[in-house]
Design a protein around this nucleic acid. Structure first.
Lengths: 176, 176
DNA sequence: CTCCCCTATAGGACAAGTCTCATATGGGAG
DNA sequence: CTCCCATATGAGACTTGTCCTATAGGGGAG
């Protein structure tokens, strides 16, 4: 249930509508979090119900009214509490590894295809991460942290590519 | 919905009860997949309903009866279909990165604590992975693949630890 | 003697998230 | 003129998975 907190964090920067939140999440935290549009609206309603955010309607004539959401003091407190609280690591679940684990049922050529498809995907992910504009390094703590989350994605993508190399080499040795 | 397929894969090796499946999953594929006991039983029922597995009751006097589940031909076909099918990569969701992204609201010392807690966890994970007994390398394709899934976990754990090093160094530079 | 663990299965409640659909208006492409 | 896209919100059904509980006999620790 970290979506609540991710949203609180974003609203703490600037009040936003559900629509704007969806875009912001996709663009700025998409490399470590994704959210369904429907779920965002539900979560926002939940935050308002719990007094962690307030909703202000901005009347618009040409398009549907905007519901601007802002964090309350209670919301900020909850955010800070969450930030410092212990995290229970979510269960590991790697469909690709699950496949690979059982893939000896397939002809070696099919396995190579799986590995190559994974390489393509990971390569694209890495390219997307590296394409994100990196601002001039400043001493700002927030910026350092946000760049670090990006670097995390890059590091894991590279590790995955290296690992895929060794897997392919092993397949060549094993399957001829 | 890969639990269905992970279970099919395990049952293809040897018919098992729900209880045995739970243990096997925890022990042998736990590094890339976890499953709730309740969910395993429900999934097994679903497989039987769909004709992908059959249930055979083994009467036991001293303990509850055993329901041995075996894959059917249809189950094997489904397993092979899944193995070769394209995977839609599951959405990224990294609570730790989410926290770090917003952590500039915290005092630097608190951030260091978060980072160190993560290091401890990752270190423990790495140790657990490396403690898993690695058999003599044989030419067996299945064994190569299964060891590769282990190596994947190790590679990512190491990448995470390296990344944590750089984050700590950056924190030292930024926050004094 | 009691309590807990192991074996073994399974239901109920709940949480989190996805997918689809409905609604409403304005603007641009073809 | 129509279709699609962007803006903007939200309900409904469904899926997947977690947590808690119940049941039931045997064995070991204290």
């Amino acid at each position: 249930m970290s979506l609540r907190h991710a949203i609180l964090g974003l609203l703490a920067v600037r009040p936003m509508s559900g629509y704007e939140l969806k875009k912001t999440i996709d663009e700025s935290v998409g490399h470590f979090w994704t959210a369904d549009q429907s779920q965002i609206y539900r979560t926002l309603s939940g935050l308002v119900d719990d007094g962690l955010a307030v909703r202000r309607t901005v009347v618009q004539d040409d398009r549907p009214n905007l519901h601007l959401h802002a964090v309350t003091d209670g919301g900020l407190a909850e955010l800070d509490r969450w930030l410092a609280s212990g995290l229970r690591t979510p269960p590991v679940r790697e469909p690709f590894l699950a496949r690979l684990f059982f893939a000896d049922r397939l002809p070696v050529d099919e396995i190579r295809k799986l590995v190559r498809a994974r390489r393509r995907e990971t390569g694209e992910l890495l390219a997307a991460l590296e394409a994100i504009a990196v601002p001039e390094p400043s001493g700002d703590l927030g910026q350092v942290l946000r760049l670090a989350t990006l670097a995390n994605g890059v590091a894991h993508a590279r590790a995955e590519l290296d690992w895929l190399d060794t897997v392919e080499r092993q397949l060549d040795r094993t399957g001829r």
